[in-house]
């Protein structure tokens, strides 16, 4: 394409267009091969039922597999676990991050030390955090099991009622550094004289928080909520390292179910259907949240 552009005399506009395509092309090729093609392929794979035994041909079943999977008890159970995980991790993470940012926003000697500690968990990956907590929660040698009086008995991660809350706490802990940094940056960007003027006018600290700080923080809270919900829907490493979906499927979130279906049970049809559903959920969620919060953010500012 470029060679041709050089051989003949072309107008600058044509040469610019050729150069433009050349610079955009690498990204478009990667997206075509690893984003759009596999998305279409997943939809297509979902039309075929994987046979119960290997070496048999996949059977074309049309859209019926989408319907049957979406209404099947194992899928609904997995969806319920995923939503519970989101509810356990996202709101608490935002409230905690906001509270820590407010605490660290005081003018005190040595406050930098606290800021460093609060943001320190950004240095940990999901795998680092999970392996640390897995060892600390070990029923035999784990320090946390010992302190929680669980030494020797059923481990916390092996307890059906405690496993998902425990995985949520690990996730909360690992994400708190990020949320804290985010909220701190937003809090520090609020002009001091605005809060000072409100104080002079006699507004209590709660009114100042409710009427000034919160509205000004709403775009950041929105961002944290979107990133948090999407992140929790995609949470995989902590499940793989802490519980493998157990005990008794109590931590079998959607993404882990997809992994299990595809790479352990070789049921590509099922995995593809659930992948498409996961995609649709995240797609709608992102759009809905944008729409909802955009209005809130707008009203907050105009008030």
């Amino acid at each position: 394409m470029i060679a041709g552009a050089h051989r003949r005399v072309r107008s600058p506009a044509v040469r610019e267009a050729a150069l433009g395509y050349l610079w955009v092309l690498p990204a478009l090729v990667v997206f075509a091969v690893f984003v759009f093609y596999p998305l279409g392929k997943a939809v297509w794979l979902g039309l075929y039922r994987t046979p119960p035994f290997p070496n048999l041909p996949s059977k074309y079943v049309g859209l019926s597999q989408y319907g049957s999977v979406a209404t099947s008890p194992p899928f609904l159970h997995s969806l319920e676990r995923t939503l519970l995980f989101v509810v356990l991790t996202v709101p608490a993470g935002i409230v905690l991050g906001l509270a820590l940012a407010a605490l660290a926003n005081q003018r005190l000697a040595g406050i930098r030390v606290f800021r460093t500690i609060f943001s320190s968990t950004v240095a940990t990956s999901t795998a680092v955090a999970s392996v640390i907590f897995f060892t600390l929660l070990d029923p035999q040698v784990g320090l946390f099991s010992y302190w929680l009086g669980k030494r020797g008995g059923t481990g916390i991660l092996q307890d059906p009622t405690l496993a998902l809350p425990a995985v949520s706490v690990v996730t909360l802990w690992q994400n708190i550094g990020f949320t804290f940094i985010l909220m701190s940056a937003a809090l520090q960007s609020i002009p001091d004289d605005l809060l000072e003027a409100a104080r002079v006018d006699g507004a209590s600290s709660w009114i100042r928080f409710r009427r000034i700080t919160l509205p000004l923080l709403s775009p950041t809270i929105f961002f944290a909520a979107v990133v948090g919900v999407i992140g929790s829907f995609q949470a995989f490493g902590q499940i793989d390292l802490l519980t493998q979906g157990g005990p008794n499927n109590h931590t079998l979130v959607l993404i882990y179910y997809i992994y299990q279906a595809a790479f352990i049970d070789n049921n590509y049809g099922l995995a593809a259907v659930m992948s498409v559903i996961l995609f649709l959920i995240l797609f709608v969620l992102t759009l809905a949240q944008f729409w909802f919060f955009e209005r809130r953010v707008f009203y907050g500012r105009s008030a």
Binding site: L45, F236, I258, S275, F279
Partner: peptide, 8 residues
């Protein structure tokens, strides 16, 4: 999301 396309 990357997670929705891992199988293909």
């Amino acid at each position: 999301p990357m997670e929705a396309t891992i199988v293909p």
